[in-house]
Write a protein that binds this DNA or RNA. Structure first.
Length: 533
RNA sequence: GUCCCUAUCGUCUAGAGGCCUAGGACACCAGGUUUUCAUCCUGGUAACCGGGGUUCGAAUCCCCGUGGGGAUGCCA
């Protein structure tokens, strides 16, 4: 059977990395299995779903290379089908309208099936007894059983559960007398009859549970007496998530559901829904959450986690993709930087971890540098030009000169937005790090030596890195400064910053005229600084 | 409250009872590289949440705590 998975976001804001990570894992799984990756927009919340949100989602997916198969499926277009499905369930006795005390419109509730014929996901889990609090009457009616347990402090804790949770239920009063047997009355309960019993002591029943094997978490189960019938159509006739989601998974013939593990509890309900709609229950894989710096799951409120922001900050799509893939998954060996092809080949859901992971910005930063470093020179130059397209100095720069600068800086660039710091190569109007400057020139002999440098730089000869290096050595000699001690002062003097490529190469690239002028300017700035101080 | 999931360096992780004196990566620190560093190389600090079992042997299996997360909606 061909694998068909889907990414089903609701477009109610920006896409954050937790969200897109789910998309990535779905995509990876589909590509690994040579199956289909489908996109479904769950836009039933008309109030909050916006066109803009859909556009940004699509943009982010395109940027990351998450290509989907088949047409985009819009959930809102299927409202009628969803409601019809619920009505069919009513006619088959699988769902019912919830009677409202005030006579207002009834929502439709799905009944956790009393007798799920042909469903192998339910099994007996042994006899069970619940001690009930005598002050709260036990009620048995179509919508379920309600009663109260006793808390550790002796207070009643009210509970409600579906009828199906209490097969072979026997209710006992305070004296231990049997007062009610559900099995005997179940038909009349379905038909609306209500039973209320005061002063009860215990409920005995056959516990049953619904279970499934999660591809990531292993076998999971939930006792039916812990479940309630669920509303699938609101009183305003709009379908609820559970219904819409399952109907559409059926419509799209989904075989594997890969989603965040906040949906584990929903799975038990969805299993019954799939069965009621006569469709084989898909395989499930529940991904651990990604948590933010505070250790909390990412939400729409985590402003720094929007996918689009990473793009704007200058991160490469491949680096983000790679870093996100490593959250909760690893290939099993020490490899971390993986090509798309390698990821596809190696990805399996069985290797996904089950514990939440914190996204590490440092690691992403480093990963980005790795990707930048392996780029071809041509690509890097073009990428840098694109990133600097908004600066006048880069746009007007000589192409060949720009290329030389970019190539010189490539190995030390970890984030393309940091290319903004290359300004000093192109313009004389750059910031001076005065603190660094004064610090570098804290010895008078440095000032003396550097004062001699313009003359040496002006001597005849090709202005190569060998030439600039020799000039600096000569300048050092004039004031008996140790070899190399002048590198950093010269760098700051000529570029305004203490960080950059090798100073000899930098001067050579800058050219004789600029190098000389800048060093003179720096000396002037220094002199003024001393006077003012 | 109840139910469920989860737990290895600061972070992401490897780990399927003996290969673990717990490996890698990022970050951090130190040294080296033209005394720049947000490059590169070398080295270092740093973890099995706690307590009980099971076993000849436990990071690994079981139980009980504790921390974290989720669910308990006519939200998705």
């Amino acid at each position: 059977m061909d694998v068909r998975v889907r990414f089903a976001p609701s477009p109610t804001g920006q896409v954050h990395i937790g969200n897109i990570r789910t998309a990535i894992f779905n995509w990876l799984y589909a590509r690994h299995c040579k199956g289909k990756f489908l996109l479904r927009i769950e836009d039933t919340d008309l109030e909050r779903s916006t066109k803009e949100a859909i556009d940004t989602l699509l943009e982010c997916m395109a940027w990351l290379g998450l290509d989907y198969d088949e047409e985009i499926f819009y959930q809102s277009s299927r409202r009628d089908t969803h409601v019809k499905a619920a009505e069919t369930m009513i006619s088959k006795g699988m769902a019912y309208k919830v009677p409202m005390a005030d006579g207002s419109a009834s929502p439709i509730a799905f009944r956790i099936p009393w007798e799920p014929k042909g469903l192998s996901a339910v099994r007996d889990a042994g006899d069970a007894v619940i001690e009930v609090h005598p002050d709260i009457p036990v009620k048995i009616r179509n919508a379920g059983v309600s009663f109260a347990q006793t808390s550790s402090k002796g207070k009643p804790m009210e509970r409600e559960a579906c009828l199906a949770g209490f097969r072979q239920m026997k209710l006992y009063d305070a004296n231990g007398n049997l007062v009610f047997e559900l099995e005997k009355e179940i038909e009349s309960v379905f038909n609306g009859k209500e039973f209320v019993f005061e002063k009860c002591s215990s409920i005995k029943f056959l516990r049953r549970e619904v279970f499934y094997k999660d591809m990531i978490k292993g076998e999971l189960s939930k006792p039916l007496d812990g479940m309630k019938d669920l509303i699938i159509v609101r009183s305003d006739s709009s379908p609820v998530f559970h219904l819409a989601n399952v109907c559409d998974d059926i419509e799209q013939k989904i075989t594997h559901i890969v989603r965040g593990d906040d949906h584990v509890e929903n799975t038990y309900r969805h299993i019954f829904l799939f069965h009621a709609l006569d469709y084989p229950v898909p395989e499930y894989a529940h991904l651990p959450m990604i948590v933010n710096q505070a250790g909390k799951p990412y939400s729409k409120r985590d402003g720094d986690a929007f996918v689009g922001d990473f793009r704007e900050k200058g991160y490469l799509a491949d680096a983000l993709f790679n870093a996100l893939t490593l959250l909760g998954w690893s290939p099993g060996d020490d490899r971390e930087k993986l090509s798309r092809q390698e990821m596809i080949e190696l990805f399996t859901l069985e290797r996904v971890k089950s514990a939440p992971a914190q996204f590490d910005l440092n690691k992403l930063f480093n990963m980005n540098g790795l990707y930048l470093g392996e780029m071809s020179q041509d690509k890097f130059v073009a990428y840098a030009a694109e990133a600097l397209a908004k600066t006048d100095w880069a746009v007007t720069a000589d192409k060949e000169y720009f290329r030389k600068v970019a190539v010189l800086m490539q190995s030390r660039t970890k984030l393309i937005s940091h290319a903004l710091a290359w300004k000093y190569f192109f313009s004389d109007d750059y910031e001076y790090d005065m603190k660094a400057l004064t610090k570098c020139f804290n010895k008078p002999e440095y000032i003396k030596a550097v004062s001699a440098l313009p003359d040496f730089l002006s001597e005849a000869g090709d202005f190569t890195e060998q030439f600039t290096e020799a000039a600096i050595r000569k300048a050092e000699a004039t004031a008996s400064v140790d070899q190399g001690k002048l590198n950093q002062p010269v760098r700051v003097a000529s570029t305004g910053t203490s960080v950059g490529a090798g100073v000899y190469e930098t001067l050579a690239l800058l050219g004789r005229e600029k190098s000389v002028a800048r060093i003179r300017k720096a000396l002037t700035l220094l002199a003024e600084g001393t006077k003012n101080a």
